[in-house]
Design a protein around this nucleic acid. Structure first.
Lengths: 337, 337
DNA sequence: TTGTAAGCGTTATCAT
DNA sequence: ATGATAACGCTTACAA
């Protein structure tokens, strides 16, 4: 438990050359003879030499680390995105540090501040909120290292972001419900201040407008917790109501909706048609199978990581690097029939 | 993008004292006067000083980083465990680096070897396999820094591990199926060489034995991919068969089973009773609702992280620190009626 | 109570 | 082609 890793100094001593020769040989410098390189490389391999990353980071101010900020690791969307990120980051020889924000702005701010210490070369983040005035932590860090947003983003800041087509998807989902006969459609979201939610809502509103259906304030529900949304839904459905469709932009709130429908014996899709954003492989096995808008979570992660690495390696500059990836719509029984 | 963080040297110059005074003051050393400390602390706060972690790591050979090795990030069980890990690790001021092994032993070996470089103070790992003879990478690293296993482990090595009661759960699940009338029960797993699978299988076998039901080789299925298990299941169910129960130890394979049952019009639970390990919040909403054994994933992550930190801080030593946490059994319609 | 200096393991500059 | 040396930012003897 106390042994320590071998260093260049030890190799140098063993082979009777200087440390700089070792360093140069290992980085394949042209100023080292071929046989010397060979000798050093094979000895290093034999003793399984591993360069100390802290020494290298300190010396070069390059860490080969990148940080990811995610609201909730145990969310099918974010864990898929993380998977995508991981796949490209490690491929390129970078390490991945993860931070969970739990959707708390204060936590996010603390992490951004902390990362000013040079621990990482760049940051991938799905932000907690895009509220104007609460972005100083982001612009400060952005002055130090590259940042790329994925999913949630702050539109006012000149920071590249990879998102899915939330607006179009919200529009299509709502249009679909209308075409299936719905006239009183509920929108469910987390918070207007989250870019994703506001975009999906905009799509919902535009679809209603296009079809000449008046938008009703009481049909637009926001909530930050599953218990709370259940309460809100209960309040709405337990009393006389006309709701005949639901467009949920939050996967786990849709489960609450299903629970409530079971409880109140509301038949999906006969009395209520439902479509929801989701990345769960379970949706097709639900009762009834859930119609879903599936964001390309894995690809979003991959693209974001790829872009960030390019920024870190200065192969690209922050001019119009945003990318929008399309969601997949999957109509199942919950919105048909 | 090129500004750099402030250092102790700069603070020292600004305040007209030496670097060591700054260092001592910031670490609240008793050999610094109260007013000096105050002055330095407030200036450091003003300029938002953050110590450079690489310098500290290099100097102290302590990194405040820990690594997690996980087979698959986008798996409800592992992502929950990761969530648990994250919650305690960051609470204690440590950073978390993640590595996905994709269940490839070679990948796992490479990561273990890499981590001999001193990047992290300790490692949390769910291993790819416990095959004897393929554990040298583990014992090597274990000679350098503490390791704690969670979920999957290698029993022959003196490394602490946190698991759930796989054997008992396998036993209970199988017993449950038998009591519901099943006599020809399928076991589905990934690979015998994975500790979790072998324990669950042992529980299955013992339950059969206890009830006097002969164990049949052809009822024990292993597979490393979803497509393959589907093929195996298809082969079994498409022909004449007597299978009347399934105990699946792999969440995602259970979805394949449901798919097949739909396809072949096999009625669950009437013709086939099913119980499965799972951490998905969707199981109660399935058609039919799935009976599940729910591992305490979050708690396992928490416990493992907690233990590792104690080992790192030498508050505990590796003597019998293993912990077994109980799963929750949830009987739904898929195994009843 | 504070300062000086060495050293952690690298890489890079400047000699030779 | 190779070696000596300084530096990255920090902590910690050792001096004063």
């Amino acid at each position: 438990m106390n042994k320590t890793n071998i260093t260049q100094k030890q190799i140098a001593k063993e082979l009777g050359v200087s440390v700089s020769t070792i360093s140069r040989a290992l980085s394949d410098s042209h100023e080292i003879s071929a046989e010397q390189k060979q000798r050093i490389a094979s000895y290093a391999a034999k003793v399984k030499y591993q360069p100390n990353p802290h020494a290298t980071s300190l010396r070069l101010s390059k860490t080969k680390n990148i940080a990811v900020l995610i609201p909730d690791l145990s969310n099918s969307y974010f864990s898929l995105a993380l998977n995508g990120i991981e796949s490209v980051v490690h491929d390129k020889g970078y390490n991945l540090m993860i931070y969970q924000t739990n959707d708390h702005l204060a936590t996010e701010e603390a992490i951004f501040r902390y990362l000013e210490n040079g621990l990482v070369d760049g940051v991938l983040s799905a932000v907690s909120s895009n509220t104007k005035g609460y972005v100083e932590h982001v612009s400060r860090l952005n002055g130090l290292i590259p940042i790329t947003f994925f999913d949630r983003c702050i539109n006012d800041l000149p920071i590249p972001h990879i998102t899915c087509n939330d607006y179009e998807s919200g529009f299509s989902a709502t249009k679909h419900l209308i075409e299936k006969g719905c006239r009183n459609i509920l929108f469910i979201g987390i918070d207007k201040s989250i870019s994703v939610t506001s975009e999906r809502l905009r799509g919902y509103i535009d679809a209603l407008q296009l079809k000449g259906i008046p938008e009703k304030k009481e049909y637009i529900l926001f909530s930050e917790s599953a218990e709370d949304i259940l309460k809100q839904l209960h309040h709405l459905f337990a009393n006389k109501h006309q709701v005949d469709g639901v467009f949920s932009s939050v996967e786990r709130y849709t489960l609450q909706l299903y629970t409530l429908c079971n409880e109140l014996d509301i038949k999906i899709p006969d009395q209520l048609k439902v479509i929801s954003f989701s990345n769960s492989p379970f949706v097709s096995f639900m009762n009834p199978p859930l119609s879903v808008i599936v964001p390309p979570a894995f690809e979003i992660g991959k693209e974001a990581a790829h872009l960030l690495l390019q920024l870190i390696q200065k192969k690209k500059y922050i001019t119009d690097l945003n990318k929008v990836l399309p969601c997949t719509l999957l109509f199942n029984k919950s919105s048909l029939g």
